[in-house]
Amino acid sequence: MDSSIPKRLSKRIVFVLIIICLSACSKETQTENDQSSASKKTLPAPQINLKENKALDLFLAKANTAFSTLTVSAKKLRKAVSIFIDKPTEQQLKICQDELEQTHLNYIATYLYRNTLILAKIEHPELDKNRLTPEIVHSNNSRLDKHPIIPGYIDSVDGYPSSGIIFSEQEITINFINKEHQFSDEAYVTLGFHALGYLLRGGEKETRRDANSFSSLNQAKTLEPEYRRSVYTKLIVELIIKDIALLSKAWLTSNDYYQRSLKELSAEQFNTLIELTLKLEENTLTKAGPLTKENNHYLSHESEQAIDLRRSLLNSLQTALSPP
C-alpha cells in the first residue's frame, strides 16, 4: 500500500481548492440570469457530518449501488448483442442500441466515485496505468469510455464507404483491436462504448446501420463486411464486459485497492476530498451549456439525459452526506 497517498492528497486538495476559489470568484461576476435554470435545481454544497463520520460508509454504500447497477446493465448488453449476432433483426438491433445507451448512462452514474479517486491520485496498479511493455495495456477508463473517436478508423463513414478496420484485410481479434486502440492518435479509438456505438449505429446517411449491416456468426466465416462487423461487435462487447467486471470488483470488494486506499485516509482527509468532489461536479453542472446538435447525440456525456442523471446523483450524494 502506498503510504504517500495522504501527503499527495493534501497537496492536491490545496491546489484544487485554489482552483475552485478562483473559479467561484469568476462565476460571481456573472449575473444570475447567465446560469442555466437547471443548475438552480442543484442543492448547495453540504456541510459534511464530521461528528458521526459516516461519510465514507455512505459513500461506499452509494458506490456499491452504482457499480452493481452498471454490472447488471453490462450483462444485459452482452445478452442483447449475443442474440443479435446470432440472428440479426431490426428489433434486436434497436434493443442492443438501447442497452448500450443504458449501460453507458450507468457508467456515467459512477463518475463521481471514479473522480474522487482521480482527485486523490489513487491509481489502481492494474486498472489505471497505461503500459506499453511487455504488452500494450490501456487504462480501464481509456478502454471503456474514450471519446471523441474518429469513426472512419473503425468502419465506413458517409462519403467513405470502404474505410476502417471493417474493410481492412486484417483478421479481427481481441489482440488486434487492443493494439490498434489509440495507435498514433488519441482519437483512433477501437475499444469501448463509443466504438461499439458507432458499429451499432453508423453514420447519419448511407452508412446508418440496419439488421442487414450484420450477418449471423452461425454461418461459415466470410470476409464480407457484414460478417466482420458482427465479429468486431462480439469482441468489443466481450472486452467491455470484462473491463466493467474488473472495475466493479475493484470497487465492490473491501480488500481491493480502491476501498483499501480510501480507508487509509483520515476521516478529515476523506471529508475534505468528498466535499471537493461534490463542489467540482456542482461547478461543472452549473456551467453546463444549452443543448445543441453537437452535445445532444447518442452516448453524449452532455445530453439532457446525461446531465440530468449527473445532477440527480450529485443531489443524492449531497443529501446523503449532509447532517440530519
Binding site: A61, N64, S68, L252, T253, S254
Partner: peptide, 19 residues
Amino acid sequence: FFEQKIAPILLPKGFDLLE
C-alpha cells in the same frame, strides 16, 4: 426494482466472501 430496492441492500461483505 433492482436499482431502487436491491442494489442498496447488496452486502459489501457478501462481495468479499464471493471474491
